[in-house]
Simulated assay, not measured.
Amino acid sequence: MNERLKITPLEPYIGALVENVELAKPLGDGQFEQLYHALLKHQVLFFRNQPITPLQQRALAGRFGDLHIHPVYPHVTDVEEIIVLDTYDDNPPDNDNWHTDVTFIDNPPLGAILAAKTLPATGGDTLWASGIAAYEALSAPFKQLLSGLRAEHYFTKSFPEYKHRGSEEEHQRWQQAVQKNRPLLHPVVRTHPVSGRQALFVNEGFTTRIVDLAVQESDALLNFLFAHITKPEFQVRWRWQENDVALWDNRVTQHSPLPTRHSVFPSVVPAW
């Protein structure tokens, strides 16, 4: 059996299309090793025509590590690790901004797998940006300025209370999540635990302030970093088709959905 994957880079700094693999089937060790190294290199991988079930998606994610259960999003029946993002006019997304998933916990997810199930007739693309490329584009003095700085990340920045009052059960789940996820600190620049490459690790979705700076200095620096990280030259844009799958390294990337009506099933894998 030929286990060689076809990997085609999509943009200079981030993104690759992966072919010659069926994600619904258990991956051989050789295939998984190729996939893992491609993820480290390209940061986000895309797959066409992969009709995986939630159970198959969970099994694939489990190859990377223990799975995370999101504190507020609804999940697939009997597969609580797989959350459901169903976006439409009366249910806009919580994270309709640039963000890195779940940075409000001590050990944010290693990665995430997103599978497209229901798509709009037009629109619905997703953008990813490379924190590595954004960091490497900075000048040496600016990198020195960022070295050692710590930023606060907080759950409620992307999940405010007013968005979670749909039912008493939903509101109680939100309140429990707030109690369990108090503001915490991460470095502004993090080192990838495997590749050793450095990346910017602040995001508009959850980062509230840089605690080592005065308020005005923090606001100015964060505004600059949020804009810098999401420059088009550091991005890849994916136009979804039904049964597409995306797999990304959440440690060094952030992403932003373009608002529209669509349904997807993602799962996340924690490992710091």
Rank of each mutant, 00 (worst) to 15 (best):
L145E: 13
L138V: 08
A137G: 09
K117C: 10
F142K: 03
Y154D: 14
A151V: 12
P120S: 08
Y154H: 14
L119F: 02
T118V: 14
A121I: 12
F155N: 06
F142Q: 09
G131M: 03
T122E: 11
E152Q: 15
T126I: 10
A133G: 02
K157P: 08
A137W: 02
T156K: 11
Y154E: 14
I132E: 12
L114K: 06
S147G: 10
Y135N: 06
A134D: 00
A129S: 11
L145A: 11
A129Q: 01
A137P: 07
L119A: 02
K157D: 07
A129Y: 00
L110A: 08
G123K: 02
P120A: 10
Q144V: 11
A121E: 13
A134G: 09
Q144G: 06
E136M: 08
A134I: 00
T122V: 15
W128E: 05
L145I: 13
L114Q: 00
H153W: 03
L145V: 15
E152A: 15
L119V: 06
A129V: 06
E136L: 06
G124C: 00
S139N: 13
A116V: 11
G124I: 07
T126K: 02
Q144L: 14
F155S: 04
A121S: 15
F142G: 05
G131V: 04
A112C: 12
S147H: 14
L149C: 09
K117A: 09
L110T: 00
L119R: 01
G148F: 08
T118Y: 15
P141Q: 09
L119P: 09
G131D: 03
K143Q: 12
F155P: 04
L138G: 08
Q144M: 15
K117D: 13
S130P: 00
T126F: 00
A134T: 04
A115Y: 08
L145G: 08
A137F: 07
S139E: 10
H153K: 09
A129K: 05
D125F: 06
G148S: 13
Y135C: 01
K157E: 08
E136C: 11
L138Q: 01
E152I: 11
A133T: 01
A140K: 12
G123A: 09
A116S: 13
T156M: 12
Y135S: 03
A116E: 03
L145H: 13
T122R: 12
T122K: 11
P141A: 09
S147D: 15
H153N: 14
I113P: 01
A140D: 15
L146Y: 02
R150H: 15
E136K: 08
F155K: 06
Y135G: 01
A121C: 11
A116G: 11
A137Y: 03
P141D: 11
A133R: 00
L149T: 05
L146H: 10
I132L: 07
A121Y: 01
L149Q: 07
A129M: 05
I132F: 04
S139H: 09
W128I: 03
